[in-house]
Simulated assay, not measured.
Amino acid sequence: MGMLNRIHHIAIICTNYSVSKDFYVNKLGFKILAEVYREERKSYKLDLAINGVYQIELFSFENPAQRPSRPEAAGLRHLAFEVDDVESVIEELNAKGIETEPIRIDEFTGKRFTFFTDPDGLPLELYQS
């Protein structure tokens, strides 16, 4: 095996902690593993899991710097979630008030996918396995 084993987690800095926490926990269904408030930094840190696997650290900071978040902006392009049935997940997200783009077909794999955004505009993808 090489020097790196796998991705350990993804860190996301949000602008409104309660809105983002609701989005990731109540709308997307992540499970809270740990939540701490760091007084010296005036910052929350929320550890989240999908299907029992630690995946995301959600942070809040006072006045975080803005950056472009379109899928074609330089830097991290998007965060993709594997799903069994993209259409059923789209229906569930839409029912929760989360807008999704039209379904696309990956030209190389033939797999179906779409994009939506978190409360701060971070591009998120649903990719059918």
Rank of each mutant, 00 (worst) to 15 (best):
L4K: 10
S18A: 14
I56S: 10
T100P: 12
F30I: 09
A74G: 11
D118H: 08
F61Y: 14
E107S: 13
R67C: 13
K96Q: 12
L126W: 01
E91K: 09
A65W: 03
L122G: 05
V89R: 12
S129Q: 10
N16T: 09
M1H: 10
R41I: 13
Q66N: 11
G110L: 00
S20T: 09
F23M: 04
A95M: 10
M1Y: 07
I90Q: 02
E92M: 09
E57M: 13
R112P: 06
G97K: 03
S88I: 10
E87V: 07
N26M: 06
A73P: 00
L33R: 12
S129M: 02
E125H: 02
D118F: 07
I103N: 05
E99W: 00
E72V: 14
V53A: 11
K111P: 00
Y17F: 15
I103K: 09
L58C: 10
K31C: 09
E35G: 05
I98D: 01
K21T: 07
P102M: 08
P71Y: 06
Q66F: 06
E87R: 06
R77D: 10
V19G: 02
I32H: 01
H9Y: 00
E107Y: 02
R77E: 15
L122C: 05
Q128W: 04
M3T: 15
F61D: 10
P119G: 05
R6G: 05
G75L: 10
N51Y: 03
D85Q: 03
E125G: 04
S69T: 13
E91M: 10
Y127L: 07
D22P: 01
E72A: 13
M1C: 12
P102D: 09
R6H: 15
M3K: 13
P71V: 11
P119N: 04
R38D: 10
Y37G: 12
Y37L: 11
I13R: 13
I90Y: 00
D22N: 12
Y54V: 07
L46W: 01
P64S: 02
K27L: 14
G29R: 00
K96D: 08
D47I: 15
F113P: 01
R70S: 13
D106V: 01
E62K: 12
R77H: 15
Q128P: 04
E57L: 11
I105T: 14
H78Y: 11
L46K: 06
I56R: 05
H78C: 01
S43N: 03
E91Y: 03
F23I: 08
Y37P: 05
Y37A: 13
A11P: 04
K45R: 14
V89C: 09
P119D: 02
I32C: 07
T15F: 09
N16S: 11
A34Q: 15
T117F: 01
E91F: 00
G2S: 14
F113S: 07
S129G: 05
A11H: 04
S129P: 00
H8M: 11
A73T: 14
G97S: 08
G110V: 02
P123F: 01
L28S: 03
L46M: 04
K27F: 12
F113M: 02
Y17W: 08
S18M: 08
H9E: 05
S43R: 04
E57F: 00
T100I: 04
E99S: 09
L124Y: 00
L33H: 06
G97C: 04
P119F: 09
Y44G: 07
Q55H: 08
E62D: 14
L124G: 11
A34R: 14
L126S: 06
F108D: 15
H9R: 04
A74S: 15
I7P: 03
